[in-house]
Design a protein around this nucleic acid. Structure first.
Length: 866
RNA sequence: GCUGGAGUGGCGUAAUGGCAGCCGCAGCGGACUUAAAAUCCGCUGGCCGUAAGGCCGUACGGGUUCGAGUCCCGUCUCCAGCACCA
């Protein structure tokens, strides 16, 4: 064997691993530590794998192969997050059942993933659309329901009139549908909600102890959005009647504020248009400008989210005529507005406005000509200047014009104000979260059915656990109903329910669960994937949890990871999992970009419209002159035609080259552009490795000192870099070995025999990265079977000890020469050797040596004066 | 605007506060070949110089240090996420 025939080698070993179940993971091995390494499982789309998928998967695979060689019992599974919209939409268009599409896509994904030589335990494969799997998704939902964490509510959803369906937030982009670009409005509908807000504080606190990227933790913190402040009661004064005959008339508006220190600066109040009091006041005829108010409320309701936020930095609102609010700190009567810059869903849906110290209130006050009272001033500023903008710096502010808190710092003023409010019974400290309850239902077919029956008497009944899974009914067509009613409503037989014992009638819930449901707990099912009696055996969960390393894209930074943590904590509280958090360590792989080309005017030119001359790209925008194009990295996209297909790379260079290149490109976490030339580089490396091992004679002889040094340095570096996930530098170290080692073994002419020890250790180092070639060379070296469980080579520190070192010599910090000294040389010897060097002496001549810095084995630096 | 991350050769990148640019790509020169591909060897940050060598150089401006790509302060640019959350 001399040719590097990757196609043959890779097929051969993939078959071997599969046939021998090489990577089957025992539930427990006495004396072996466990290592649970998880990949974010993919949605098996019709387009197949792209080069982004293998990036994280390769990194975890290399680490898992390494950990096995280090004696760990490694759990490394793969599965499919297969519910979801694309299969359903394909079903709508073609009538093909989503299960059929899903199976086809899964088969293709599995085949592609196997072609990359990943060491998954395929006996643990899971699929969220498998009834045996979603039985337990439904079961966990029932636990949530029983715990009072699942409830039904009328909430506004993203309704797309043109598509006749409800959309998930992620399917709405800038207020329009991702598919078709139709407008989306908010419309209240009956929905299932999960009470994730009950866990807000624990989800926040739990982040402290996790080894996750700081950015991801921060994003989750922001999403949870904890703020501390106060609720303050404002009494209402009505000029039209005052509510005689309506004793329950709401006459105290509670506002939420984080700046109760600024209460003396409040000059008006704002309520959200949806605030329930407004409707009551309108009913009671307390608002003089009722028509105007109603009109504003109507307009606000019909606005899309986009119109209410981004386009609408320009404030709008209507003053309520006939009602004012009394500021509890000073008795001042404040006008009240409704405006959609106040959100109904946060805090109390009403605010006190302090335009001098809040940017939004400032903008509103300026537009409506409202008074602005300064109550916080930068410490040291004496004169009251006309404010140019809201002053919002709490750190440097001191209270002014504020009665009993004048002169205090902002922090002290808040504390004193809260104490005062509580004493007077008009307010209290309050913690708020931005996090909302999780909208958990979708008006879709291809999702988990809710195991819920709405009985005729109005009660809600769960499908008994022993009757789960509740499977999806067959449908003739999957089209949306157009009314917002889910497609399952069409399955009349399935929907109508009669209790087998009592004969009572009911209807089944026709919403389905969102795609997040199945991915919330899949890492638990891998631990015990075929268990019929429980989602997983508690003893096995105890063995394997938590996940030691979770690798995936940053796009799941918030939702998936937050939802998963929520479910996990609920299961923990029920005593069903042994840990409080699911994923101990998280790493995000960076996106792989493609190359894109643009003209001098910045017009993008797709790959297939580019002419290459002498390696340079030429192209033209429509109707323009051809010109030399500028190359830059950009997201791979169909429109730019720069998508790289892993199948093509494997065909041309092999899976080992693809794996090696994806890791060699740069740090795992970094965003980096794809380069086909770069693949050729690592391909050449593998060819040279193959040639060296198979074509050079190998002898059983001890290593020379020089050989031992190169070998041990490589083994050390590769091992350490694997532990720290620095795959790129580990590969670089192996390339250095290949460049240097043969040179150490002999002179010119006929190849010197290589020492067997060095070759074998090098092959074992390479094997986790390029497992097919690794196995093949291991076999060539005379070993039977797989190297997957061979011990990873240890290095000998003694071999790395140097007798002599070459050290730099600086004069005033500038490099002037190099000297070779014994590694044991002391400062005096180093200095003497340095001064003797002619290049150094030249710069010392005629100067006074003030100080000499000598760092043993590192460097010498002379500090001199003229 | 807020939060997180990043700025180093033509390109991807590498450097426990101690020789900036390892490794790879591209480029140049050479060997082999009728020729090409493949392969192998050498050179390759910029400027000055025949050379020895010198000067400059890690986004920009300061600072700490014998010594800064690395630490501190400030500025700019790029990427990602969030964004009327009171």
């Amino acid at each position: 064997m001399s040719e590097y025939n990757y196609a043959v080698i890779e097929k051969k070993w993939q078959k071997y691993w599969l046939d021998h179940k090489t990577f089957k993971t025992p539930d427990h091995v006495e004396g072996k530590k466990k290592f649970y390494c998880l990949d974010m499982f993919p949605y098996p789309s019709g387009a197949g794998l792209h080069v982004g998928h293998p990036e994280g998967y390769t990194a975890t695979d290399i680490l898992c192969r390494y950990k096995r060689m280090k004696g760990f019992n490694v759990l490394h599974p793969m599965g499919w997050d297969a519910f979801g919209l694309p299969a359903e939409q394909y079903a709508v268009e073609t009538g093909t059942h989503p299960a059929v599409t899903t199976k086809k896509n899964v088969d293709r994904f599995r085949e592609q993933i196997r072609a990359l030589g990943f060491s998954y335990d395929w006996d643990r494969e899971v699929n969220t659309t498998d009834p045996g799997y979603y039985k337990w998704t439904q079961w966990i939902f029932e636990k949530l329901y029983e715990k009072g964490l699942a409830y039904v509510a009328e909430v506004p959803v993203n309704w797309c009139p043109a598509l006749g369906t409800v959309l998930a937030n992620e399917e709405v982009i800038d207020g329009r549908s991702e598919r078709g670009n139709h407008p989306v409005i908010r419309r209240p509908m009956r929905q299932w909600m999960l009470k994730i807000t009950a866990y807000a504080e624990r989800l926040l606190e739990g982040l402290e102890h996790l080894d996750w990227p700081e950015g991801i933790k921060e994003m989750q913190r922001n999403w949870i959005g904890k703020s501390t402040g106060a609720e303050v009661d404002f009494k209402m004064k009505f000029t039209m009647g005052g509510g005689a005959g309506a004793p329950e008339l709401p006459s105290v508006v509670t506002v939420y504020t984080t700046r109760c220190d600024t209460l003396f600066g409040a000059t008006y109040m704002v309520m959200s248009p949806e605030h329930p009091f407004i409707a009551r006041w309108l009913e009671e005829g307390l608002l003089a400008n009722a028509e105007e108010v109603k009109e504003y409320r109507r307009k606000a309701a019909s606005k899309s989210d986009l119109e209410r936020t981004e386009l609408n930095k320009d404030k709008t609102g209507v003053k309520l005529e006939g009602v004012t609010g009394v500021n509890p700190v000073n008795g001042v009567e404040l006008p009240i507005f409704i405006s959609d810059y106040v959100l109904a869903s946060y805090g109390t849906g009403a605010i006190m406005a302090v335009p001098a110290h809040d940017d939004r209130d400032w903008a509103f006050a300026k537009k409506f000509g409202l008074p602005i009272i300064e109550v916080v001033r930068r410490a040291g500023d004496v004169e009251s200047l006309p404010l140019q903008a809201a002053f919002t710096d709490c750190a440097t502010g001191t209270m002014v014009n504020s009665g009993f808190i004048t002169g205090l710092s902002v922090e002290d003023a808040k504390a004193k104000m809260i104490a005062w409010l509580e004493e007077k019974g008009v307010g209290h400290a309050k913690t708020q979260y931005k996090l909302r309850d999780w909208l958990f239902s979708r008006q879709r077919y291809w999702g988990e059915p809710f195991p819920v029956i709405h009985m005729a008497d109005g009660s809600t009944k769960l499908v008994p656990a022993e009757d789960l899974p509740l499977t999806l009914p067959e449908l003739a067509d999957y089209k949306p109903t157009g009314t917002g009613e889910p497609p399952l409503a069409k399955a009349a037989e399935w929907v109508n329910y009669t209790d087998p014992k009592t004969g009572e009638k009911g209807v089944r819930e026709t919403n389905t669960m969102p795609q997040w449901a199945g991915s919330c707990w899949y890492y638990l099912r891998y631990i015990d994937p075929h268990n019929d009696a429980a989602f997983a055996d508690p003893a096995k969960l105890k063995e394997w949890l938590p996940v030691d390393l979770y690798v995936g894209g940053a796009e799941h930074a918030v939702l998936h990871l937050l939802y998963s943590r929520f479910w996990h904590k609920v299961l923990f509280d029920l005593g069903l999992v042994p840990t409080d958090e699911p994923f101990q360590r998280l790493v995000n792989q960076g996106m792989i970009l493609g190359m894109a080309y643009k003209t001098s005017r910045g017009v993008l030119v797709p790959m297939d419209k580019i002419t290459w001359r002498e390696g340079k790209p030429y192209g033209a925008e429509d109707g323009g002159e051809e010109e030399l194009l500028t190359e830059f990295p950009a997201k791979m996209s169909k429109s730019l035609k720069n998508v790289i297909n892993p199948d093509d790379v494997i065909r041309d260079y092999g899976a080992d080259s693809l794996r090696l290149y994806e890791m060699f490109m740069g740090p795992l976490q970094a965003v980096k552009p794809w380069s086909t030339k770069g693949v050729e580089g690592v391909f050449r490396f593998l060819k040279r490795v193959n040639k060296l091992v198979t074509e050079t004679p190998i002898a059983d002889r001890p290593l020379t000192k020089a050989e031992a040094k190169v070998l041990n340095a490589t083994v050390k570096k590769v091992g350490e870099d694997l532990e720290s996930l620095n795959f790129n530098t580990a590969i670089s170290a192996m390339m250095v070995f290949l460049n240097e080692f043969p040179a150490t073994t002999g002179g010119s002419g006929a190849p010197e025999p290589l020492p067997r020890e060095a070759v074998e250790k090098f092959v074992l180092c390479l094997a986790p990265f390029a497992p097919h070639l690794g196995e093949e060379l291991w076999q060539f070296l005379g070993h039977a079977g797989t190297l997957a469980y061979e011990p990873f080579p240890a290095y000998d520190p003694a071999a790395l000890v140097e007798d002599e070192v070459e050290i730099p010599v600086q004069v005033l910090g500038k490099l002037r020469g190099r000297v070779t000294v014994p590694a044991t040389a002391d400062a005096a010897a180093m200095r003497a050797a340095a001064e003797a060097n002619p290049d150094v002496a030249r710069f010392l001549a005629g100067k006074t040596i003030v100080k000499v810095v000598c760092v043993p084995k590192k460097m010498v630096n002379f500090v001199v004066r003229p």
